[in-house]
């Protein structure tokens, strides 16, 4: 369990990082918290020729509040997000989601940018980013660009971030005070990578009909990206009743389309002695994930509803 030889460059600024990424060639990758990359390197599943260590770019470690958004620097640790008063006040859904990331020891090290860049199936930030329409600020040799979630996530373990680019910031819109939210996962054990993850937000009109409802799911799309549920829009304008939720549950089951074959293809890779190893933690059947998608979506919406009504326990 030792990595192949690699070069190592420690950088102090975003510009230095970009320069290093360009200088050391295609097989150069960024290391931030290292909570996935180090393991993959030790298993020889990942064999980068050069690591650019961005832990020295301390000005990428921040959480800031603007008028209608919070901005999180890409090097911010999960634990910092989890403990942040700004996040708690303005985007409690994100805070709730972060508590689901692995164990606190891992959250102390892992970074928001690293998790998003890796895009492993079901990962919490991606699901929240999709449900809230977060934006991703990416820096490269030609300056900065801003991507939506739809543009950012490409496929299993793949994003639109180019080899010579670095994520610098993620912008989450604030949740309004009247927004209910819920985040749920099915995991085989405490802190483990989810089989399915779900985030929901809900707003009600004064007459208790649904003003807005959003649901995003992790690990259910055949492309391996966080998935924004379409059929939830049917709630809008209608009262939040069991009957309509039952209908929605059914529709979500039909809407989502997990592809175990695509997952398996992305999920296996050669390691030591050319023995195949797995990168994806839970390859469950499509049937199960459809079922879980539906259950978690409804529960997350119900949780959001109870929050609005003050009945959430």
């Amino acid at each position: 369990m030792k990595p192949v030889p690699f070069e190592y460059v420690a950088v102090k600024s975003v510009n230095e990082a970009i320069t290093a990424l360009e200088k050391y060639g295609d097989n150069t990758v960024i290391i931030a918290g290292g909570q996935s990359l180090m393991q993959e390197m030790n298993l020889r599943q990942a064999r980068p020729s050069c690591l650019v260590d961005i832990n020295g770019i301390t000005d990428l470690d921040y959480i800031e509040e603007t008028g209608d958004a919070i901005k999180i620097g890409a090097l911010t640790r999960h634990r910092t997000v989890e403990k942040s008063e700004i996040v708690k006040r303005n985007c409690p859904l994100l805070q709730e989601a972060v508590t689901h990331i692995a164990h606190f020891q891992i959250r102390n090290r892992g970074t928001i940018g690293g998790s998003l860049r890796q895009n492993p199936p079901g990962a919490e930030y991606g699901v929240v980013a999709r449900v809230l329409n977060a934006q991703f600020v990416i820096a490269g040799p030609d300056g900065k660009r801003v991507l939506s979630g739809e543009e950012f996530f490409v496929s299993h373990f793949k994003t639109a971030v180019k080899q010579n680019e670095i994520i610098v910031e993620i912008i989450f819109p604030k949740l309004t005070k009247d927004t209910g939210y819920g985040f749920l996962e099915v995991t085989r054990r405490h802190g483990h990578i989810p089989i399915v993850s779900a985030a929901a937000t809900l707003q009600l009109n004064e007459d208790d009909t649904v003003k807005d409802a959003q649901v995003a799911l992790g690990n259910v799309s055949p492309q391996g990206v966080p998935y924004k549920v379409q059929s939830v829009s049917q709630l809008i304008g209608k009262p939040f009743t069991q009957e309509i939720l039952d209908q929605l549950a059914n529709d979500i089951k039909n809407e989502v389309n997990p592809d175990p074959e695509a997952d398996a293809k992305a999920g296996y890779t050669l390691q030591l002695s050319r023995i195949m190893g797995r990168r994806v933690s839970e390859i469950s059947s499509a049937e199960y994930r459809k079922e879980a998608s539906s259950v978690l979506s409804i529960r997350a919406l119900q949780k959001a509803y109870q929050q609005i009504k003050g009945t959430f326990q």
Binding site: Q39, H103, R188, R189, M276, G277
Partner: peptide
Amino acid sequence: LLEDLAYDSNGLMTNPDFQHYLCPTAMD
């Protein structure tokens, strides 16, 4: 509930590490 040394039909073990072979933690 958790642990399973899983082999596919070619005799390849599909979960030979602690991310995929699930031992219970204290929380479980």
